[in-house]
Design a protein around this nucleic acid. Structure first.
Length: 633
DNA sequence: AAAAAAT
């Protein structure tokens, strides 16, 4: 173990010395560093003097169906480049664009309020754009919260200024958020204290606000960072965002951007969004109008970095939403590239925040590469589901699924229903089938064009197609009001995927129903399912307990790839119990073992010392070399 | 084995 700790320390030293090249012997919270030093904004100006502020390309509104997606970015006030820039622009501040504030002479100058914009951003009274809190919202307070790591600050209890910035509080109120959720209560002071954070909280419990509130509030109070000397040559075509948020799907990134627009109203912070499948030219033009908070999918961001359109040299806040997914096999190399091999400040010189409802133990381990002395926060057991969701498991053979589905849909109320399938082909097939049967269904999956994806999602949201057949693309993060029913037409093989899928309902204290079709092809998930249902006080059908017992004898041990169907090593290796997180029992308040997603207190001591709490050590050979995990098999 | 993410 000593040996392991040593390796971890070495790793952290190496990281600290990369990025923008400054390693520090003494820790200084990022929010106390890189304060703008007077030069910032002192030229106050619009370096793009003659730029046409109103030239929103047709791109956004045309392509994006129901989204209202003006970037509100005003031509060029993005001016914080000290001496670089004095020769550019007149220094005269042109007619301000509504809703866009400024950071001038080390002070925040919020813009005036604007009725039209407020209506656009927050809706009118009878049609709020924000999902209202449900009847069980206050029950969140009963969920046990664990925050571990050194010096965890006291949680806030309300949206007040201080400690939050007054403008942020106003915007939160306009968005009809009345009271912080548990994850928000803790994340606000943790981020304000300059700490890194790994936050695990149930689906629908306010994680997006959990990072946007503190990041924006701190940004309003502290202003932009100055561009480090080590930054590449100045280019008027390059933007230097202060905060970067990455998420695994385009629709989720778009949704986070829409939220960011609400909370950044009137401030100096201009949010932008970039993702694949959409016209990159339009996105670049939007970036050029200013970009302080960038919300991105990894692939498109990498592209823009290579094109020299974005610099990460100014990043103070790095947020990974759905962090376990972002660090899973498919994404981890891209994230590692963006975070460690481009120009982003090193781990010691930025704040890194990770959020998810699930966080398998070996991914938590991987995550430490990107975190410094962090606080681990969990609301409820990591990977548990909200009790606001009533879960039903039906035994349905494959051939019967369609007819049972028709029965379910016929009996449904007027809420929205999402049906998950395992394959894109089946999603199309099923959507066509339902449509032919007279059900207004549409489909979303990765083989559809981005335009079709967004159109499908918009049609679903507005209720013109109240049935959405979806693959995993819609499993995480999407916050769609009035989704009352989730059907797992096919169950996923990973219990964490199930958790995210059913989490599209039962959000913000509202209730929801999740129905799953189970048969013997789903043995791989049966134990996780039984544990999950038990923990969430849901009924466990007899057939399920029975199959779980059978499986406990038969094929549970997956060592050596000996299970049924030749199921070899896969990302499910984390379920094997060895190596990382101990056994896979579900446990509340028992730190000696944990489920796949890590239990209470499993990773408690933020930072590397947390390791000492583990009895199980690492049997895997790639310890200390996480990137090797990609070539593990 | 599937899905997602740049073109």
């Amino acid at each position: 173990m000593a040996d392991i700790t040593q390796q971890m320390n070495n790793l952290s030293v190496e990281q600290g010395s990369q990025g923008n090249g400054s390693s520090r012997s003494q820790y200084v919270p990022p929010h106390l560093r890189n304060r703008p030093s007077g030069g910032n904004g002192s030229f106050g100006g619009n370096r793009r003097g003659g730029f046409n502020n109103n030239s929103f390309g047709g791109y956004d509104n045309n392509r994006r169906g129901g989204y209202s997606n003006n970037n509100n970015s005003f031509g060029g006030y993005n001016n914080r480049r000290g001496g670089f820039n004095n020769s550019r622009g007149s220094g005269r501040y042109n007619t301000p664009k509504p809703g866009v504030g400024r950071w001038v002479d080390g002070k925040h100058e919020p813009a005036e309020r604007n009725d039209r914009l407020e209506k656009e951003l927050y809706g009118v009274d009878d049609e709020p754009t924000t999902q209202s809190s449900g009847i069980n919202f206050d029950n969140y307070d009963d969920i046990p919260v664990e925050a571990s790591g050194e010096g965890v600050p006291e949680p806030i209890t309300a949206f007040t200024a201080p400690p939050l910035d007054p403008l942020l509080v106003e915007n939160v109120k306009l968005s009809r958020f009345t009271k912080p959720t548990p994850v928000q209560k803790y994340s606000v002071p943790i981020v304000a204290a300059g700490r890194d954070l790994m936050a695990c909280a149930q689906t629908g419990s306010g994680k997006t606000g959990g990072f946007l509130f503190p990041v924006l509030s701190e940004s309003y109070m502290n202003g932009p960072a100055s561009v480090p000397e080590t930054a590449g040559a100045f280019s008027s075509h390059k933007v230097y965002p202060t905060a970067l948020v990455m998420a695994p799907t385009r629709e989720l990134v778009s949704q986070i951007f829409d939220e960011a627009k609400k909370f950044s109203y009137r401030s100096w912070v201009r949010p932008s969004v970039v993702y694949g499948g959409a016209d990159i030219g339009g996105q670049i033009r939007n970036l050029e109008r200013g970009c302080d908070l960038l919300v991105a999918t990894p692939g498109r961001l990498k592209d823009l970095l290579e094109r020299g359109r974005v610099s990460l040299a100014n990043i103070k806040y790095l947020v990974l939403d759905e962090a376990d997914r972002m660090l899973d096999m498919g994404f981890e190399p891209q994230i590692r590239h963006i975070v460690q091999e481009c120009d982003m400040p090193g781990v010691e010189d930025r704040q890194t925040l990770m959020f998810s409802a699930t966080f398998p133990k070996e991914i938590q381990y991987l995550a430490r590469d990107f975190l410094k002395e962090y606080i681990f926060l969990s609301v409820g057991r990591v990977g548990s589901t909200s009790e606001n969701i009533t879960q039903k498991i039906l035994y349905v053979e494959d051939e019967e699924k369609k007819s049972v589905l028709l029965d379910l849909l016929s009996a449904n109320d007027n809420g929205l229903t999402i049906i998950f399938t395992e394959t894109k082909r089946m999603a199309d097939n099923l959507a066509d089938f339902l449509y032919d049967q007279g059900f207004p269904a549409t489909a979303i999956h990765g083989d559809r064009s981005q335009y079709e994806r967004e159109k499908a999602l918009a049609a679903f949201k507005t209720g013109s197609a109240p049935i959405l057949v979806a693959t995993a693309v819609a499993a995480r993060g999407l916050d769609i009001p009035n989704v009352s029913h989730i059907v797992n037409f096919d169950l996923p093989s990973d219990i964490d995927d199930y958790v995210h899928r059913i989490g599209r309902t039962g959000r913000a204290g509202n209730i929801g129903i999740a129905t799953a079709f189970f048969n013997r092809n789903n043995k791989n998930i049966v134990k996780g399912l039984v544990d999950l249902l038990t923990e969430a006080n849901q009924e466990v059908p007899d057939f399920l307990s029975k199959i779980a017992r059978e499986s406990a004898f038969g094929g549970k041990s997956m060592r050596g790839g000996s299970t049924r169907g030749g199921r070899g090593p896969s990302r499910d290796f984390r379920k094997q119990g060895g190596g990382f997180g101990g056994s896979s029992s579900s446990n509340w308040g028992n730190s000696s073992s944990s489920s796949s997603s890590g239990g209470w207190g499993a990773s408690n001591n933020g930072g590397y010392s947390g390791y000492s709490g583990r009895s199980n050590g690492y049997s895997s050979s790639n310890y200390g070399n996480p990137s090797a995990s990609n070539s593990w098999w």
